[in-house]
Design a protein around this nucleic acid. Structure first.
Lengths: 195, 195
DNA sequence: GTCTATAATTCGATAGAC
DNA sequence: GTCTATCGAATTATAGAC
């Protein structure tokens, strides 16, 4: 079958995203990706040069975070959690980075840069003190990524069968606190406030 | 150099743990593990049969969770967070499973079984309703593993430079709420309580 | 207990015909 | 634009000598 250049490239990229998301960088082979795209492995090299470049193309995406200016200030946590749950199931973008970033340095760096460029500004806007954007974004990331890890990757039984609403109900207040809550007193250590 | 059987086996196992923790299951090669142990690769096969069995031996460990009966009820969250931060840096056990469980089914299953066998009972004891042990343990796991992922594996800058006390101050109340707090109302969906 | 030699795969990448 | 053929490297695993 003969296709146009752009068609072929798009078909390869779609297959690559699925494979990288399902198997991670190492186990996703160019041969398997080519087979999924019903094309010869040599075509993958022709269009993307090498495996690393193919991954870079497959791992490019936008978190598409909501504009917090349109969210009431006490619903920020719930809005963020809801958005990520939907975003996670809409396509495999985040799964690609999670499955590969744990062992591959390039993927980890990509994940860091995405959160710095896209999540930190939103956290800075939500924070009572804009300079805390980095710290608050990182805290939110721990809970968001941890939930994704346990629900979608490790498939912990209670989480896999939990409804979105339940997850929002549990995690919403946590994210709300990380993004907008009072900063914990650091001295004396081990002390915490729970507003 | 000639060593006793138990010495050799222990040396191989130590090297395997380090390699699996640093590189994950796929990238940790038997050749590299053997080189670290200053021994021939064939010896690894001789003592452990195959790579999967070697990994199973290297991934066996105890969370050594504290006895919550000795912790005041309002300090349970802080105690759990403190314990895991220490446990995580003491040896590579959890890192081994995290780096491999994302792509390897056997490692993921091991992680599920460890949390079921070791974390669920503790959560059941902390919960106001013992039957909620599974759900509460899973929620706590999302925050604990998410923190480990972002701090130790992905190395998000703000988290990597945060002190243990700061992390305990931020995450302690979250874990306290997941393990002991009031259950969120599930209807109407999207609604959350924050006691 | 230790090592050499090698089998059997698998993978990324290249060269070149059509 | 597509594919065949193949190279070179790396890996797990086995057989057997010392």
């Amino acid at each position: 079958m003969r296709r146009s250049s752009t068609e072929t490239k798009a078909a390869i990229l779609d297959a690559a995203k699925l494979r990288f998301a399902a198997d991670g960088y190492d186990r996703a082979t160019i041969r398997a990706i080519a087979a999924d795209a019903s094309i010869d492995p040599a075509m993958v090299m022709r269009y993307f040069g090498n495996k690393a470049s193919l991954f870079a193309a497959a791992a490019e995406f936008d978190l598409e975070l909501p504009d917090l200016a349109e969210v009431s200030s006490d619903q920020i946590g719930a809005a963020i959690v809801t958005h990520f749950l939907e975003r996670w199931e809409r396509d495999d973008s985040l799964l690609i980075l999670l499955r590969s970033g744990v062992t591959d340095d390039a993927a980890a760096e990509r994940m860091r840069s995405i959160f710095t460029a896209q999540l930190v500004p939103v956290a800075a806007m939500a924070s009572p003190e804009p300079t805390q954007g980095m710290t608050r974004a990182a805290l939110a990331a721990t809970q968001i990524l941890g939930m994704a890890l346990c629900r979608f990757v490790l498939a912990f039984p209670p989480l896999a069968s939990m409804s979105r609403a339940q997850i929002v109900a549990w995690l919403g207040p946590t994210i709300q606190h990380y993004l907008t809550g009072g900063e914990p007193i650091t001295s004396p250590p081990g002390q915490a406030d729970d507003p």
